[in-house]
Design a binder for these strands. Structure first.
Lengths: 189, 189, 189, 189
DNA sequence: TATGAATGAGTGTTCATTCAT
DNA sequence: TATGAATGAACACTCATTCAT
């Protein structure tokens, strides 16, 4: 069921897609206003600046993903935990094809503020805890967690960009295999 | 040993680093001129436009990498071939910390011209041939080649961004293990 | 009576005077903006480019003059027809001291577009018809029409530039005599 | 017989043609250098600035024309004197198709210096003397001399622009008739 | 509340001018 | 003497932001 979005959400939606398609700097306020079907001035009723807007978007993404991953996360076996994480990524992208915007954004991007960086750190920290457990249990390679995360998220993100570009068609079977790929990459053989 | 660079190379170097750090649109000509220690006008003696500049950079990167990978590539065992590719990536980034610029650039970026896209396609096609062989020999997972490439390059790129950011220190041991990670991700178990 | 002009008209007025005074290339957008008392960016809300602006001005001038000349034009005696044309020129310059901008603009100016050139051609074609009639009736010299037109408009334009410069004061008597001068130049004696 | 021109003359020739074709502001130093087949820097060995260059050109033109017109000028009948002036114009344009550059240049052009304006004034003053005599002898209309001059030069210039554009082919017969036209315009009937 | 006309700082780019060779 | 690489001020133009309506 599609609901009529309020202007706030229309602006968020439009800017998310434009930031993803063209990058922060090449996505202009007039473009966003047009896609959101609002006046350019209206954007400033909801967001202090273009920078605020992108940070709201970033933080909202990270937080929503963090919340999703955290759910019932710490008490399950490592292999299942990894599956959980992977399917959270899948789910997340299903909710919006641009939802992974925060993964494409380099942490030191000139427009990210401290809060955005801290929220990403929180997410990474949580994943770090999980990977630490996996390493201590001897099921995951003894590599630094940020490297393990980089491998999985990097692989996932690149695949998803193929999907977004229409170069790959996604289905349940493929997802299962990709999950196994990513797990194979980090598990201790 | 530092060599005196000519202005052409200074401009290329400065713009490569700025494009990598801030993206094409946020890297301004005045910034590039300042970092290259030349006047803004000088850039236009060597490059028709900012767009030309980024495409020269992109194409030079892709071509240099393609040349490096292609060397003695087709007649070796798949496992060794993969190792070759991986160490090319390592080598390449050692030559310049920004050398993988073209991997960070989305193929549909608004500033890439047709030639740039074609050169990337040639590289991907070459890798596709390799992965096809691996699949037909039953040593690599039967996933589309672009997916396999996305996994390996995505993982590598994300790791390398950690290195660039100073979050991870690279050494021979780590490299060996990362290579194994990436191979494990795509090999048929 | 001075009426409050809207910004569009203020920009047209300011640029017309500056183009006339300094020429297209030496009249800069900042100058035009200042004289029109608007921001530089505002000019681009109304005109796509400086080139568009000059062509709008040119075409508007030509069309307004063409319309004025055409009125009840074909059925009157040649001598009266000529008088009509001459007094149209006078009237036209009275409406705006810069109205003859299009006569000062060389047809092959690098900034004129095809439409502008076509509109001038239409005007000249109309005058050509008139002069043809004059020649066939044996009251006008049998010179090519474009030469006859060049004589009259060239003479008129140069005189008017004196008026604009303040070197000559215009009055009804002078106008009468000038009209006779121009007619004498082309009539068959 | 064509003589190898020295660089000074090559620069003058090239800039004269470019100033005529495109106007002072749209004719760039690189363009002039290229057409003159010299380096851009060389122009500055001969002329202090672009403005100096255009003024040298202007003054040289005016002076050469003034000299030509002045020759045996004061003691002949008015009608013959006019013919002399007219054929000087013809001669002058035959020497160089761009020689009348100074007639196309508005006296208050932003790049003309005082000397240029004074030299033009001298020429006009000389013509003024001639027209005064014509008026006192009752053979020329009693209009201000600058108006009489404007008529003749305006007509001539406009015709010559047609010739330059290739729209009219000039020949002895046409010249004779044009001279008569111009004389008819100003003579007292 | 919502708009979009208006703004001017800042962009990519050009070009008159300088100067080392 | 002659050059053209180098420069930076100034150009045409864009766009984040403001504000009267």
């Amino acid at each position: 069921m599609t609901t009529a979005l309020n202007k706030y959400d229309m602006i968020l939606k439009a800017s998310l897609s434009l930031f993803t398609e063209r990058g922060f700097d090449a996505a202009t306020i007039p473009m966003i206003a047009k896609r959101a079907d609002v006046g350019a001035g209206t954007i400033y009723r909801y967001f202090d600046s273009k920078e605020t807007l992108v940070n709201v978007l970033y933080q909202e993404s990270v937080q929503r993903f963090t919340k999703k991953v955290r759910k019932d996360f710490s008490s399950i076996p490592v292999r299942e935990g990894f599956e959980h994480i992977f399917y959270c990524l899948i789910d997340f992208t299903k909710e919006s094809e641009y939802a992974l915007f925060f993964l494409e954004t380099k942490k030191n991007s000139h427009y990210l503020n401290q809060t955005s960086r801290q929220l990403l750190d929180q997410l990474l920290h949580m994943l770090d805890d999980f990977f630490k457990r996996g390493k201590s249990e001897g099921v995951i390679r003894s590599l630094p967690s940020n490297v393990l995360i980089a491998i999985v998220l990097g692989a996932f993100l690149n695949i998803y960009q193929l999907v977004q570009a229409g170069d790959v068609e996604i289905n349940a079977e493929l997802i299962t295999e990709l999950e196994q790929c990513c797990w194979d990459a980090i598990k201790l053989h």
